[in-house]
Design a protein around this nucleic acid. Sequence first.
DNA 1: TTGTAGGCGTTATCAT
DNA 2: ATGATAACGCCTACAA
Lengths: 336, 336
Amino acid sequence: MTIKDLAEATGYAVGTVSRALNGHPNVSEKARAVILEAAQKSGFQFNTNAKQLKQIHSNAIIVVVKGVGNELFGEMVETIQHSLSRTKYQLLVDYLDEDLNEVTRALQLCRERKPRGVLFLGGNNQNFIQDFAAIDVPCVLVTSDGSKLPFPNLSSVTTDDLEAARCGIETLIAMGHRQIAVIGGDPSISDTSRLRLEGCMAAFAAHDIPFDPRRDYQSGRYSWQNGYEAVQTLLRGGLRYTAIFAAADVMAIGAIRALWEYGLRVPQDVSVMGVDGLPLGSYLVPQLSTVVQDGARLANRGLTILLESIEQGKKARHETVPFRVAKRESIREIPI
Amino acid sequence: MTIKDLAEATGYAVGTVSRALNGHPNVSEKARAVILEAAQKSGFQFNTNAKQLKQIHSNAIIVVVKGVGNELFGEMVETIQHSLSRTKYQLLVDYLDEDLNEVTRALQLCRERKPRGVLFLGGNNQNFIQDFAAIDVPCVLVTSDGSKLPFPNLSSVTTDDLEAARCGIETLIAMGHRQIAVIGGDPSISDTSRLRLEGCMAAFAAHDIPFDPRRDYQSGRYSWQNGYEAVQTLLRGGLRYTAIFAAADVMAIGAIRALWEYGLRVPQDVSVMGVDGLPLGSYLVPQLSTVVQDGARLANRGLTILLESIEQGKKARHETVPFRVAKRESIREIPI
DNA sequence: TTGTAGGCGTTATCAT
DNA sequence: ATGATAACGCCTACAA
C-alpha cells in the first residue's frame, strides 16, 4: 500500500495524495476527506525510509544507555518512552556495557540513523573529550556533568554527585558515626564514582575523620554482587566500621547481605546507606536509607532540554536536579 | 559522501562500488581493495534509508517488551542485545505498558520498520487471536505459550508456568504448609497469571487442601507495591497463613515487607516463595526462595528460533525451557 | 487546486 | 568483471 495505490484508488494524483496526507495547504476539503478516508480504511502507512531518504535526518531520538544493569536508568527509559510516545519522534534505545565508549557508539548510530538528538544516560567526560566533536546534533548528557566540556551542542542534567555523597556522609556523621567505609565504582573510570568519592572525602575532611581510600574504599561495578564482594574485602581486612556508605543502592543491598553473613546486623551493628533512591529500597527489611536521585525529573528535564534544542535551537544548558537524603531503617544513631 | 562520490573518486561505476562495499561476488580483488580503501579514508557511511528503501524489509529485529517494570525482561533484553551485536541485525527495543495491546503495537512497528522478525517478551493470547493475522514476518513469543495459536509464523518459548507454580506449591506442601495464600497477576488479563494460579490450584487439589481464590488469592500488577498491598489485603481478612506464594519475585519482596510490618517474621512466622529467580533474590535477607526461570536461556532460545525462521525458513516451534525450585532462606519446615 | 516529473542513495537487472 | 539504468516510495518544484 503506497501513495501511488492510494492515488489510483481515489482518482487523484500522487502529489495531491501526498499533500493531503501531510496536511499541506492547497488541497480541497473534498479531496482531503476522500483521501484520508481511503488511507484510513486501507490501513495505509508511510514508508519511513522513503520519506526520510530525502531529509537530512529522521525524526528519531536516540537514547544511549550506559550500564545495562542500572535500575535507575531503566526507570528513566520508561519515563522518556512515555513522554515521547505522543510526539512525532521515534525513540531508539541502545544499551551498551559500562566499559564501552558511549560516544563512539553514539557517533556510529548518528551516521546510521541520522537522529534529531541524542540522550546519554550515563557517560564519561573523557570519552566526550576524545570523540564528541564529530557529533553535530543536539545531545544531553544525563546523570553526568558536562558543564566542563566545551561543546555547544552538549547539554547536561545531573544530580550534584559530589554534594549528594557529601550529604550522605554528613548524615552518618551527624548520627555519631566515625568509622565509615565507602564502596562505589572505580573513580578512575567513572566521573560519577570519582565525584561521589570526593564528596565523601570532603565530608570526612571537614570533620577531621581519618579516611584512607586504599583501606576504607572498595570499588567495583554497580551490582548486587560487587557490593557484596566489596564488603567481604573490607571485613577481611579486619577493620571495624560502624557504617558503610555505598555509592549505589544496588551495592548497598549486596553489602547488607555480606554483613549479615559475617554476623553483623543492620542497623544494630552497622548502618548502611546507599545512593539512588530505588523504589525497591522502601520495600526491604530494613528499609534502605539512601540519597534519592529524582530519576523522573532527570529524565524529563533531559528530554525537555533536548527537545528545546532541537525545535527552538536553544543553546546548551547545564542543570542540576535536587536530591534528598532519605533516612530510613538501615541507619541508626551511635550512642556517644 | 555517497557511493556515487565514491564511484567518481575511484573511477568505478556505482554498481561496482555497491557490490564491493557489500561483499558481493563478481568484483575483482583490485577493485575491491581500491574501493574499500577510498571508503575507509573518506569516512563513507551507507544511507540506511536509501538502502532499505529498495529492500522488502530492513535488517531490524524488533523486541516488544510488555511490562516495563519486569526485571526478568530487562535481563533478557541485555542478553538479546549482546547476542545480536555481532550479527548484521539491528535491534529495536520497544517497551509498552502491561495493559496495552502488544500485537497491534507490533503491527504498527512492522509497517513502519519492516523488520525481519519480532520477539515478544510477554504477551497475551487473546491479543494474538484478534490481531496477529496481519503480521507476516516470523515472530517468537517468549514467556507465554503460543502453541494453542494457529499461526504458522508464530513460535514460542516458555517456562511451563502451570507446572512451575505447581512445583512451588508442592515444595511448600512438602515442608508441611497447609495454609497457603497466593498472590499474583490478574488471571483474566494475563495468561501467565492464569496458568500459575491454575498450577497452584492443581497442587492444592492433589493434596485436598482447601483453597478459595476469592479468599486466598490476591491479584495485582507485578510490582513491589502490589505485592505489599496484596498481603495487606490478605491479612486484613483476619485469616492466618503459614506461607505465601507469590507468582513473581517482585511481589514476594513487597509481601515480605508487608508481613514484617504486621509483626510477622520470614521464615519463622510465615514462609514466602516467589517465581522468576531474579539475581537480587540471593542477596536479600532472608534469601528469597523462588522458582527460577532461566531468563538467559529463554532469551537465547527465542532468538535462535527467530533467526532460524528468518534465515532458514524453519517453521514455527513451541518450546519449553526447564525451571528449577530454589529452596533458600525464606521458607522453613512446619513442625507437625 | 491538481497533475507531472525529477531526484534522494541504493540495489538489482541487464547488457557489455 | 564492470557499467548503465530502472526501480524503490515519497516529496517538491513547476506546469497546467
